[in-house]
């Protein structure tokens, strides 16, 4: 028995050595990214995140939940180095992106490179003051793509992927501001999708939307995870329960518990998590 276990461990280690087959033992998932001892300080000295260790699994949705100010958005924004835009923010630890094992927080790694691999959808829809078409094509243009045919195809594909194509296909040259809030958010998803990102970050993407638009976006995310890895911050616990595969509960800058969503919502191992989930607190 011990021998058999030993054999399995050796086998798994071997697999882990090959970056394309990185496997975590307990769950049969491919690891896409993981944060290791991640700490974050704002310019005013606030220690916003303390030793965060969270894995993201390939083609799964991982949800970050917790009360306001717990640091979940701060954590999410670390994944595409948004914090580099503001002077004085300090962070340490690692966020490793697989399969190439790049530490995306490394100062030697260009934040722009990170952002080209990991795209983001914001809390409030923030389309550019451009046409629908140009909004979606923006990421490709930034990458220096000028081929009209290819752009057309990619824009169509991304808009279809964001379930927006049927609503806008006849008015691609309209200003993006003319869309409804829910449509704008799907446009932002299409914009993020058009560049084939490896991971998509969602920062409370439905908090500014009405219930119907919210359902649309949630369905869309379930569709998207067939192709890519998703990390989402949400205020809404039902949303986390509905769409995510894994959930991390954060409180006051610390990661309290991380597990499969089903486990977090049915039999969490920490009392604090249970209190938050059941609404006793939060």
């Amino acid at each position: 028995m011990a021998l058999l276990l030993n054999f399995v461990i050796v086998f798994v280690k071997k697999l882990n050595g090959n970056p394309r087959n990185k496997i975590i033992m307990a769950r049969k998932e491919i690891l896409k990214a993981e944060s290791k001892n991640f700490n974050f300080h704002y310019a005013d000295g606030t220690h916003a995140l303390k030793d965060i260790n969270i894995p993201l699994y390939e083609k799964k949705i991982t949800a970050l939940i917790g009360p306001s100010g717990c640091g979940k958005s701060t954590f999410l924004r670390s994944f595409n180095r948004m914090h580099d835009l503001y002077a004085g923010n300090k962070y340490d630890g690692e966020i490793i992106l697989h399969p190439d094992d790049t530490n995306i927080l490394d100062k030697k790694v260009d934040p722009i490179e990170v952002r080209m691999r990991i795209s983001m959808v914001f809390q409030k829809p923030n389309p550019f003051p451009k046409s629908i078409y140009e909004n979606v094509a923006y990421g490709l243009r930034v990458r220096g793509e000028h081929n009209k045919r290819l752009l057309d195809d990619k824009v169509e594909e991304a808009l279809k992927g964001a379930s927006l194509w049927n609503e806008v296909k006849d008015r691609l040259q309209d200003l993006a501001y003319n869309l409804s809030g829910g449509q704008q958010q799907r446009l932002c998803i299409a914009r993020a999708l058009a560049t084939d990102p490896e991971i998509m970050l969602f920062d409370e993407p439905t908090s500014a939307l009405d219930p119907i638009a919210t359902v649309n976006i949630e369905e869309l995310m379930s569709e998207l995870k067939k192709k890519l890895t998703i990390l989402i911050v949400t205020h809404n616990m039902q949303q986390a329960a509905r769409i995510s595969d894994y959930t991390a509960y954060m409180y006051l800058g610390e990661m309290i518990e991380f597990d499969e969503t089903d486990i977090i919502f049915t039999k969490p191992s920490k009392k604090a998590t249970e209190d938050y989930i059941t609404g006793k607190f939060g």
Partner: peptide, 24 residues
């Protein structure tokens, strides 16, 4: 938020300035 939208797409400072901030 509009600048962040552009930076999140991997735009450089110059690209963000010329293609997003200035038109806005």
């Amino acid at each position: 938020s509009m600048r962040e939208g552009a930076y999140a797409m991997g735009a450089t400072r110059f690209q963000t300035a010329v293609s997003v901030v200035m038109p806005a």
